[in-house]
Amino acid sequence: MKSGPYKRRERPSVFTERKREIALVVCTAVLLVTGLAGAAREVKVIVDDQVISVATTALKVGDILRQAGVELHEGDEVTPGVSERVYGSATITVTRAVPVTLAVDGREIKMVTTGPMVKHVLAQAGVLLRPDDKVSPGMEAGLTAGMQIKVIRVTSEVVTKQVRLAYRIEKRSDPSMDRGKTKVLRPGVEGVMEQKVLVTYEDGRPVKEKVLSSKVVRQPVSKLLAVGTRNPVRTLYTSRGAYRYRECYTMLATAYEPGPTSCGRYADGYTAIGMKAEPGVVAVDPRVIPLGTKLYVEGYGPAIAADVGAAIKGNRIDLLFETVEEALRYGKRWVKVYVLEP
């Protein structure tokens, strides 16, 4: 009996076995993804402080946000990114951008940012601060919509200044000038002080000065002023005419006659300055009214200070009458005595 040829079965190679294993893993993964994609799962969407839970089969972040009703605006920040895919119970975070205005270096920059603080805005705008610069509000302040942020550039320099020093005014009484009048005897000269000053500027505007040192380079010279002390000329109108006068005294007036009754046994009919003793002569205290001064005495008339008396001291005046009777009749009274102009 004739038998056919014998065929031996070959075993699969190791390489073929590895290919089968890889194909099995890929098929399993596809089945898993397909299963996950087809099944709805819960995704949390956090918008600022609000949490929205959404059941979805979508994988792309942008699709999930649309399904959650979240509308994105310019500058909003989304984590993970809008075009990325998420699997399982994922969490998507949306940080809303707010509009702010940044004023710096003479410019006004309008921008939207997610911040969350002022310092982040400056970093986003590429603003570099110097050590003394100021920021309002502060760097750590939280952002709010419409916030105005201002950067104030602070600089300083030392400058030399000349400061004027005022002169004093010295007054000297002048009895030869009427009261209220003055005359410059020596003009005043201002002094000069040199100062080293630290000047601080904010945005180029000087806001503070600090004197570091000072020295007087020229002393001031005082102004010398003559001040009139004499009463101005005034006019006295009487029934006997008009009289010009400067001084007026209120005095206690008494009366005397030129004979021995009033002047003693040595009376010779002449006054202390050698004038004939007659009506119109009056006795005064020379320390108050100099002898020889022309006067007008209220209720008596024109007179001349030509005599003295032992009892006539200070603001007292003694009026000469012709007779003892007239002197006694006059008695004693207060009167105004006008010192007349020569």
Rank of each mutant, 00 (worst) to 15 (best):
E17V: 09
I22T: 13
V25Q: 10
A39H: 12
A40S: 14
A40W: 02
R41A: 12
E42K: 13
V47S: 07
D49H: 11
K60S: 11
K60D: 05
G75K: 10
E77I: 09
V78M: 12
S89Y: 00
S89R: 13
V94S: 06
T95G: 03
R96M: 07
P99D: 14
V104Q: 10
K110L: 11
T114L: 06
T114F: 03
P116Y: 00
K119E: 14
G126P: 13
V127G: 02
P131I: 03
D132L: 05
E140F: 01
I149G: 02
V151Y: 00
I152Y: 06
I152D: 06
E157N: 08
V158D: 05
Q162G: 07
R164G: 14
L165A: 03
I169H: 08
R179D: 07
G180V: 05
T182N: 04
G191Q: 03
G191V: 06
G191P: 07
Q195H: 02
V197D: 02
P206T: 06
P206I: 03
V207I: 07
L212Y: 05
V216K: 13
P220H: 13
P220K: 12
V221Y: 02
V227D: 03
G228P: 09
T238I: 09
S239L: 12
R240W: 05
R244W: 08
Y245Q: 10
E247H: 10
E247K: 13
P258N: 00
T261G: 03
A267C: 14
I273T: 15
P302E: 14
P302S: 10
N315Y: 15
E325G: 11
L328Q: 09
P342R: 10
